[in-house]
Simulated assay, not measured.
Amino acid sequence: MAQKRRQFTAQARTPFRAPRANAVAERWVRSVREECLDRLIILNTAHLKYVLHEYESFFNTARPHQGIGQMIPDPASESSSSGMVKRRDLLGGVLHDYYRAA
């Protein structure tokens, strides 16, 4: 057991017993679990890959982030400040993307 533990920690990229060393990754994992995976039944590996791809796209192009002043990390190039607000359901309604119709 001790040999396996030493082997694992030697390959790890973050320091052993350092809970804040990889805070960004830990926060992303928490977000994807709370907002997406805890609300779905994952059927197989292909389904999991699809769900994670959809969530990643939503996370980077539609979801506002508190750490950057409620801005979107990679917003659409064309954003209108007028027009009707519409909702697009993603992953069967688990996620909602709001946008202005042109």
Rank of each mutant, 00 (worst) to 15 (best):
Q66P: 00
A101C: 06
S81D: 13
Q3F: 11
M84S: 13
F16Q: 06
R30A: 14
N22C: 09
A62C: 09
A21H: 08
L43R: 02
L95D: 07
G83N: 04
R39K: 14
P64M: 03
V94S: 04
H65P: 10
E56Y: 06
L43C: 04
A76L: 13
N44P: 00
P75V: 09
Q3Y: 13
L48P: 00
Q66Y: 11
T61C: 05
V94D: 10
A102L: 06
M1A: 12
G93P: 11
G92R: 04
P64K: 00
I42L: 05
T14A: 12
R6C: 09
F59Y: 15
Q7I: 07
T61W: 01
S57E: 14
S80P: 00
A46W: 01
A18W: 09
E54N: 01
A101K: 11
M84F: 05
R5H: 13
N60M: 08
E34Q: 10
G67T: 07
F59P: 12
I72A: 06
V85M: 09
P64Q: 02
D97G: 00
D97A: 08
G93Q: 05
L37P: 00
A23E: 08
L90V: 09
A62E: 13
F58Y: 15
S80H: 02
Q3S: 11
L91E: 07
A18R: 03
D97I: 04
V32T: 08
L90N: 04
H53G: 12
T61S: 10
Y50I: 00
A101E: 12
T45H: 06
A76V: 05
G93D: 09
S79G: 02
P75W: 09
H47N: 04
A23Y: 09
V32A: 10
A46E: 09
I68H: 06
H47C: 01
E78I: 11
Y99D: 10
H96E: 12
A76F: 12
S81V: 00
N60L: 04
N22W: 05
F58Q: 03
L48M: 03
R33G: 00
I72Q: 03
A23V: 05
I72N: 06
V51E: 07
E34F: 03
R63V: 02
F58I: 03
I42V: 15
F58T: 02
Q70E: 14
E56V: 03
A12I: 04
Q7C: 07
A10I: 03
A62G: 10
D74W: 13
K49V: 06
A101W: 07
A2Y: 14
S77L: 06
F59C: 05
A76P: 08
E56K: 02
Q70D: 15
Q3L: 11
S31F: 09
A62D: 15
V85Q: 07
D38P: 02
R33E: 00
